[in-house]
C-alpha cells in the first residue's frame, strides 16, 4: 500500500475524473460534451503523471485535449443543440452495464494492490529491460528503447494503422463538395491575430525538441508528431484555406503521411542490407549502440512525420466537409 502523498493526489484526481465522467454522461449539449471531454482528458493526463507515465501523459495532453477536441468541434452542427442528448438509460442497458461493472469489481479483489512492487507484472521481462537497455541500446529513456528498438515491429504496425486511418478518412471525406470558405478564418479575432503567430513558431520548436530529445527525456516521435500537427492545425484554424495551401499543399500532406511509413520501413531494409535482421539497428554503425542510436533517431523521425501529417490531414478533411450537412 502506498501511504505517501502520491496516493492522496491520486485519489483526489480520481474523484475529479469520476465527477467529470458523470457530468459527461448527464450532459445535454454537444458543445458542452466536447468541452467536458477535454477537461476529462486533462484530468486523466495528470493521473498519468502521478503514476510516472510521463510519456503517456505527454501524448494524452496533445491528443485528448488538443486534437480530438478540434476534430469533435469540426463535426458538431448548430442543429444538434436543439435536442436533449441525455435520456435515462433503458432497463436493458442499465442491467448490462451494471452487471458488467459488478463482475469487474468482483474481479478486482484478485488484482495486485496499487504500487505493489512484488507482483508478477514487475518481476518478469521488465527487469531485463530496466537492467540491460542502458548498455544494449545506450539511451536513458526506457520507454523509447522498448518502443523503438525492442518492440520496433509493433511500432511499425501502429504507424501503419495511423496511416491507414488517415487514408480511410481521406477516402470517406475527400469526395465531398467543398464548404464555402467563410474567407478569413479566425484571423478576424484581434486577440488571436496578435497572440497566435507568436505562439505557433514556439509550438513547432517545442515539437522538434520533443522529437530529438525523446531518447533522453519524455517524448519521441508520436508526441512530437501530435504537437507539430497541433501547431499546424492552429495555423490552419487561423488562416483561410488559400494561405494554408501556400504553406503546405494537400498533395504534400498525403506524401508526408506515406513518407514517414516509408522512412521507417527503409530503416529496416537498411539494417537487412547491413547484414542484420529487419529493424535490427545494431549493424547501422560501427558500434552496436551507435547503430541503435541512429536507427532509433531515424524511425522516430518517420513516426513523427507520419503522425504529424496524418493529424493535419484529418483536420483538413473534417474542416472542409464537416459542416456541409445542409
Amino acid at each position: 500500500m502506498i501511504t505517501t502523498i502520491n496516493a492522496l493526489v491520486d485519489m483526489g484526481l480520481l474523484v475529479v475524473l469520476s465527477v467529470s465522467a458523470l457530468m459527461l454522461v448527464r450532459c445535454n449539449s454537444p458543445l458542452n460534451t466536447i468541452i467536458l471531454n477535454a477537461l476529462y482528458s486533462f484530468t486523466i493526463c495528470s493521473l498519468f503523471v502521478i503514476m510516472d507515465a510521463v510519456d503517456v501523459a505527454f501524448t494524452e495532453a496533445a491528443v485528448g485535449a488538443g486534437i480530438s477536441t478540434v476534430l469533435f468541434l469540426c463535426v458538431i452542427h448548430p442543429d444538434d443543440e436543439s435536442g436533449r442528448l441525455f435520456v435515462w438509460p433503458g432497463p436493458l442497458a442499465t442491467v448490462v452495464a451494471l452487471a458488467t461493472g459488478l463482475l469487474l469489481v468482483f474481479g478486482t479483489f484478485d488484482m495486485p494492490l496499487y504500487g505493489d512492487p512484488q507482483v508478477p507484472v514487475h518481476t518478469h521481462l521488465v527487469t531485463r529491460f530496466l537492467e540491460d537497455s542502458g548498455t544494449e541500446i545506450g539511451i536513458p529513456n526506457v520507454v523509447t528503447s522498448v518502443l523503438a528498438s525492442y518492440r520496433g515491429y509493433d511500432t511499425l504496425g501502429e504507424v501503419v494503422v495511423v496511416f491507414t486511418a488517415g487514408t480511410s478518412v481521406l477516402i470517406l471525406l475527400a469526395a465531398g463538395h467543398a464548404r464555402q470558405d467563410s474567407g478569413d478564418g479566425l484571423i478576424s479575432n484581434s486577440i488571436l491575430r496578435v497572440v497566435m503567430p507568436r505562439i505557433i513558431p514556439l509550438v513547432i520548436l517545442f515539437a522538434l525538441y520533443v522529437q530529438f530529445h525523446g531518447d533522453y527525456g519524455p517524448g519521441g516521435g508520436f508526441q512530437a508528431g501530435v504537437i507539430l500537427g497541433a501547431g499546424l492545425i492552429t495555423l490552419a484554424l487561423l488562416t483561410d484555406s488559400r494561405i494554408m495551401q501556400g504553406v503546405i499543399s494537400e498533395r504534400w500532406i498525403i506524401r508526408g503521411m506515406a513518407g514517414g511509413v516509408l522512412v521507417y520501413g527503409l530503416v529496416g531494409v537498411a539494417s537487412m542490407l547491413g547484414g542484420g535482421k529487419y529493424l535490427d539497428y545494431s549493424v547501422l554503425a560501427q558500434s552496436s549502440t551507435d547503430g541503435q542510436h541512429l536507427g532509433i533517431l531515424l524511425i522516430e523521425i518517420g513516426v513523427g512525420i507520419t503522425v504529424a501529417f496524418t493529424m493535419l490531414s484529418l483536420f483538413v478533411s473534417f474542416n472542409r466537409s464537416g459542416q456541409t450537412g445542409d
Binding site: D55, V56, T59, E60, V63, G64, I67, S68, L71, V143, L147, D154, T155, E158, V161, V162, A165, G166, V169, F222, Q223, G225, V226, V307, T310, M311, L314, F318
Partner: peptide, 12 residues
C-alpha cells in the same frame, strides 16, 4: 502511448 495515437486515428 501508441494506443492513444491509434485511438485518435480510429476515432477520426
Amino acid at each position: 502511448l501508441t494506443a492513444i495515437v491509434v485511438g485518435v486515428a480510429t476515432t477520426a
